[in-house]
């Protein structure tokens, strides 16, 4: 590998490139040669009917599923075979559509687990609870409370995560993901189960988070009006295929999208499936 030319390529490369990813489960082609590129700092939306392959694409990007073919590049470097832990350390964090909190731990502890990488401390000092270790712990706790405050969860810090109502759990997943200090945040239906007011709060929150941490966000969400307002760019998946890509205005006008998903002005069945959640 020639280091100098790679270095130049990496500097110019987008944050994440998805190149012709296919993913087959038995007879089902969940992803069919999907490609997209994420530019640093953008909020990129992924929409499409249920079963279109959106979550599968997240699983491939975050290292939980191995693609059948195609590849992902992180800042120009292929990520094949790295696994979820290494990819998180590179800067990719995610939330889960079906919520995977550490349910027996408190809200605060969930975020502290997310701060795992930041919590490295010399073992002996940690065992004996030395002053330096306690100060370090204090900084971690402060950081955890800061994140909880950002997600408006600080009042619930000592509650068991498994006891939280739905909307709070979704926000806790975001706090835990942010704790890992990501560069790219993958949000899988973060507004599912929220009422319209909560959804609006969440939209503003995601914008704030992006600005505050200068993050890149890749978000899956069914609520199309929310996505139109929130996202810089959108891609539409249908039956594992990327059928559209562009600005919200472009995607809204795309005839393929109108046919497959948005259901036009008449509001076909695709619209009911898409916006009813």
């Amino acid at each position: 590998m020639s280091a100098s030319s790679d270095g130049i390529a990496a500097a110019a490369a987008p944050l994440l490139q998805v190149e012709g990813i296919s993913c087959r489960f038995g007879g089902l082609l969940a992803l069919d040669r999907v490609s997209l590129e994420l530019v640093e700092g953008e909020i990129f939306g992924l929409i499409g009917p249920n079963g279109a392959g959106k979550t599968t694409l997240f699983n491939v990007i975050s290292g939980l599923t191995t693609a059948s073919s195609g590849r992902c590049l992180w800042r120009g470097v292929p990520t094949a075979g790295l696994g979820a832990c290494r990819l998180n350390r590179l800067g990719i964090a995610r939330t889960f559509q079906n919520l995977r909190l550490f349910e027996s731990l408190s809200v605060r502890e969930n975020v502290l687990v997310g701060l795992h990488h930041a919590a490295r401390a010399p073992l002996l000092g940690a065992l004996l609870g030395h002053g330096a270790f306690r100060r370090h712990q204090g900084r971690l706790e402060a950081r955890a409370m800061e994140l909880l405050a950002l997600l408006e969860l600080e009042a619930l810090a000592e509650q068991r995560a498994g006891d939280l109502p739905y909307g709070d759990r979704r926000r806790l997943e975001i706090a835990r993901a942010l704790a890992t200090a990501p560069r790219l945040l993958l949000l899988d239906e973060p507004a599912a189960g929220m009422n319209p007011a909560e959804k609006d709060d969440l939209r503003q929150l995601i914008g704030r988070i992006r600005d505050h941490y200068s993050l890149t966000v890749l978000i899956i969400e069914h609520h199309v009006p929310l996505m139109m307002r929130l996202c810089d760019r959108l891609a539409v998946l249908n039956f594992g295929r990327r059928i559209a890509l562009g600005s919200p205005a472009e995607v809204r006008r795309d005839p393929l999208v109108i046919e497959a998903y948005l259901g036009g002005s008449g509001g076909g069945q695709g619209s009911a499936a898409g916006e009813g959640r």
Binding site: S62, G83, F102, L105
Partner: peptide, 14 residues
């Protein structure tokens, strides 16, 4: 404790 609750989620937070 995180691994006990959800090993996959634990790997995803590094």
């Amino acid at each position: 404790a995180a691994i006990r609750d959800d090993e996959l989620a634990a790997a995803s937070v590094g």
